[in-house]
Amino acid sequence: MSSGSRRSGFRPDTEAGALRLSIAATVVVSALGIGFGLLSGSFSIVFDGVYSLVDGVMTSVALLVANLIAASTAAGAGGRRLVQRFTMGFWHLEPMVLGVNGLLLTGAAVYAFITAIGVLLSGGRALNFDQAIVYAVLTLSICLGMGLLGLRTNRRLKSDFVALDAKGWLMSGAITASLLVAFVVGVAVEGTELAWISPYIDPTVLALVCLVIIPIPIATIRRALADILLITPADLKAQVDDVARAIVAQYGFVDHRAYVARVGRGRQIELAFIVPAGAPPRPLEDWDRLRDEIGAHIGHDTPDRWLTIVFTTDVEWAD
């Protein structure tokens, strides 16, 4: 691989490039968190670093899945080999990764909340606020920068992976911002009559922020479960039914059956048209042209659309 292609691998204008850049930034944030956490004696900072590390691992898995999907739908020998081994594609992996990622993010926030409550009940924790503030400022800058970059990039990419990654960065930024506020207030009350609250500031703010961010990944988890369970998306089903009913009326068919599912970025559509028994035979080319017409009406003809159209006189084959 040339140096130019290596540099282009971290460009955020592609899904893979955005995820690679996120992974690199996550490694930096994780190292900062664990290092400064140990130096300052802050469990919250250590947790923030470990949280970033877990998020980075899941982003690496998301990148792997994104590359597999792109490779399996691409032309060339590599894509053909993947299709031969995985004829149904890799779309089913995407909601699995999104669901696990969302659960881990929520679980991490729940764990942080429980930890914060435990620290509060045990009398708080003394910190080196100067080192903690340096960490919080550096990490907050990286988190906000990566989160905003991901949101801006995803306006064009429209990738669930990049969207969840950007959400993860903003969640990390919220946690870090709460820590920064706690550390600044801790420095401000040192040597005053309010110094007794200093050990309680960090866990209190962290607990409040966790309550806010815990629900954030729930929408992603819900959609991932719907994709894994192959729950029929109502909007796609309605669109396909409208197209099929128009074709039935136009060509004098008896009825149709439509089966649709959304699996990650993939759209799986199976259409069966019931043709009147004894209808005049047609050349296969006519049926192929009709399939092309139906596919054009349905739209979204991309490598991520799986469309099957059959014609039969036997209702049992359609059901």
Rank of each mutant, 00 (worst) to 15 (best):
D314W: 13
A226S: 05
F86L: 02
H92I: 14
L229M: 11
A249W: 03
T220E: 05
L19Y: 12
L148V: 15
V162N: 03
D242S: 13
A71K: 15
V61G: 01
F43W: 09
G173W: 02
Y135D: 08
H300W: 09
D227C: 06
G17Q: 06
R291D: 00
D242V: 00
I142K: 03
V97F: 03
L64K: 14
I274D: 04
R222W: 10
T312C: 11
V162L: 04
S60C: 07
F10A: 02
L98T: 13
D235K: 01
D288M: 05
D55G: 05
L144T: 12
L157Y: 04
T176V: 07
D130C: 03
P203H: 10
A109C: 01
L229R: 05
F90R: 02
R20K: 14
L148Q: 11
L211I: 13
P199L: 03
H297M: 03
I133R: 15
V310P: 00
S198G: 14
T106H: 03
I298Q: 12
A166M: 01
T220Q: 05
G252M: 04
L225T: 07
V50A: 11
E293T: 15
I269A: 15
G99V: 07
A109N: 00
I201S: 12
I197K: 01
L148E: 01
F311G: 04
A71I: 01
V187S: 14
T220H: 08
D13I: 14
V28L: 13
L32M: 10
R265L: 13
T220F: 10
R156G: 06
A132Y: 12
I23Q: 04
I114P: 00
A226T: 02
L225A: 07
N128I: 06
M96S: 09
A318V: 13
G118Q: 05
I294M: 09
R152C: 04
D292A: 14
A238P: 04
G123V: 08
I231N: 02
G299Q: 09
R289K: 12
K167Q: 04
T87S: 15
A116C: 08
G145Q: 11
I294K: 12
G107E: 05
I216Y: 10
G89N: 10
G37K: 01
I269V: 14
A195Q: 13
A18E: 06
E270F: 12
W306D: 03
V187L: 14
L144W: 15
V61I: 08
P12M: 15
I216D: 02
L208E: 14
E190D: 15
A174P: 02
V65W: 07
G35R: 10
D255A: 11
I309P: 00
G145C: 08
C210H: 02
T87F: 12
A272Y: 04
P217N: 03
D255C: 06
P303R: 08
F86Y: 11
A108L: 12
L225C: 06
F90Y: 12
R257G: 00
K167R: 09
I228L: 12
L104D: 02
G168F: 06
R85F: 08
A62E: 08
V209Q: 02
T308F: 15
I142A: 07
D286W: 15
A182N: 06
L179Y: 02
L271Y: 06
S122R: 10
N67E: 13
P203V: 11
G186H: 11
D130T: 11
D241C: 10
A174I: 03
A62P: 07
V162M: 07
I218K: 05
A261V: 04
V310E: 10
A31F: 07
S22M: 09
D301C: 05
D292Q: 14
I114S: 01
